[in-house]
């Protein structure tokens, strides 16, 4: 299928005056509000405002997620705070390069790459930049697939807090960053979901015609 680049214009549901359901693939009449098969709300390819709104919200809460501590460890009365980046560096210092890598990729690389990619896609669609092949669509697919994996760090905090409590010499408590990081992941997931992939192809259509 790699060679199936389309050069001729493709007949879309929209051009045929129909409305496709993004859940079940059913074609509906252009005037329908909900899908006649699965009952999902049908959306016409809408603007980018919701995408940008969620993206901005995600970006804003991503700042405290990095500056405030994610974990507060107190050991024998001594308190240490560690941020997301600090936690990854600590792991690397202990020699666990693999795990440090996972944390670094999931909590730092993926979120930043996601902001940049969604932003790029939104601007590219808005400006109608010409595109080659499926690159932009693949970017969208990757962002949608990978976004949820950033939650790893939040779960790690939950596990550590549950495990290391009282009875032991050390206690661990979640910091503000745990909440804001979770929110940031949720907001960017919503941004990716609000982004309608049909818009990517609309700009392709206008190129070929």
């Amino acid at each position: 299928m790699a060679h199936a680049r389309t050069t001729q214009p493709v007949l879309t549901a929209q051009k045929a005056g129909l409305l496709g359901c993004r859940i079940c693939g059913r074609a509906n009449l252009g005037t329908a509000q909900t899908c006649s098969r699965c009952g999902a709300a049908l959306s016409r390819p809408a603007g980018l405002q919701p995408v940008l709104a969620w993206l901005l919200a995600g970006l804003i809460v991503y700042i405290p997620a990095n500056t405030y501590p994610m974990l507060r460890t107190s050991m024998l009365g001594e308190e240490t705070d560690s941020t997301i980046l600090g936690g990854a560096i600590d792991l690397a210092h202990h020699g666990s390069w693999g795990v440090a890598g996972i944390v670094f990729v999931a909590s730092i690389l993926i979120p930043i790459a996601k902001f940049i990619t969604i932003g790029y896609l939104a601007v590219a669609v808005h400006r109608g930049w010409p595109m080659q092949g499926r690159t932009r669509f693949h970017l969208y697919e990757i962002v949608e697939f990978i976004g949820r994996w950033s939650m790893i760090d939040v779960f790690v905090v939950a596990i550590l807090v549950a495990l290391v409590q009282f009875n032991l010499a050390a206690t661990i408590a979640p910091g503000i960053a745990a909440v804001s990081f979770a929110l940031s992941v949720i907001f960017t997931m919503l941004a990716a979901q609000a982004f309608d992939p049909r818009l990517i192809w609309q700009s392709a259509d206008t190129d070929t015609e």
Binding site: V10, L11, T12, A13, Q14, L18, G20, C21, R22, I23, G25, R26, A27, N28, L29, S36, R37, P45, F137, E141, P197, R198, I200, W201
Partner: peptide, 12 residues
């Protein structure tokens, strides 16, 4: 209409 299928990602 039920004989048609719409691609969920690109509307083809």
């Amino acid at each position: 209409l039920s004989e048609l299928i719409v691609c969920p990602s690109c509307d083809a």
